[in-house]
Simulated scan of single mutants.
Amino acid sequence: MHYFKNIDWPAWIFTLGLIIFFREVSVLIMSQFNHPELGNLTGLLSLLLLLVLLRKFKKIPSRLVDTNNKLMKESGFAFLPICAGSLLMLVSMGKEIPLFLLVMCISTLIPLWVYAKMAKKWL
Rank of each mutant, 00 (worst) to 15 (best):
M89D: 10
M93W: 06
F57W: 03
L41T: 10
S46Y: 02
T67S: 12
T15K: 05
H35S: 09
F57R: 00
T15W: 06
V103T: 15
K5S: 10
G76P: 07
L16P: 08
F4T: 09
M104D: 08
I60S: 01
L41S: 07
K56D: 01
P61C: 01
L123M: 12
I19D: 03
I60F: 00
F33Y: 09
I82E: 04
L112F: 15
F79K: 06
K95E: 13
N34S: 13
P10D: 03
F21W: 07
P111S: 05
K58P: 02
I106V: 14
L102E: 10
K58Q: 02
K70G: 10
S31L: 01
A116D: 10
A116I: 11
M89G: 06
N6C: 04
F79C: 04
P61F: 00
F57Q: 00
L109P: 06
S86D: 05
G85H: 08
M1Y: 11
N6T: 14
V27D: 04
K73T: 15
W122A: 02
A84N: 04
V91K: 15
P61Y: 01
L112C: 14
K58A: 01
Q32G: 15
R55V: 00
W12G: 04
H2Y: 12
L112A: 15
P81V: 01
P36I: 02
K59C: 00
A78G: 09
M118Y: 12
K56Q: 03
V25K: 02
W12S: 08
F79I: 13
K70D: 13
L90T: 13
C105N: 07
T67G: 09
H2G: 06
P111Q: 01
S62T: 09
L109D: 03
F57K: 00
E37Q: 11
L109V: 12
I19E: 05
V91R: 12
D8K: 03
M118W: 11
L101S: 06
G94Y: 04
L112W: 15
F79L: 13
W9Q: 08
W113Q: 11
K70Q: 13
P98D: 01
A116L: 12
E37D: 12
G43I: 02
N40P: 06
A11S: 13
L44S: 11
L102M: 10
P61A: 00
F100N: 08
K121V: 11
K120D: 13
G39N: 06
V25H: 03
K70E: 14
A119T: 14
G76Q: 08
I13M: 06
N68S: 14
L18A: 07
N6Y: 11
P36L: 01
S62A: 09
A119Y: 13
K121D: 08
L90S: 11
S86L: 15
S31Q: 08
L90N: 08
L80T: 07
T108V: 13
M93N: 10
L71H: 07
K73V: 14
F22Q: 06
G94T: 03
W122E: 04
D66L: 07
V103E: 12
S31C: 05
M72T: 13
L64A: 06
K56G: 01
V91P: 05
K5G: 05
I13A: 08
M104L: 11
P81Q: 01
R23W: 10
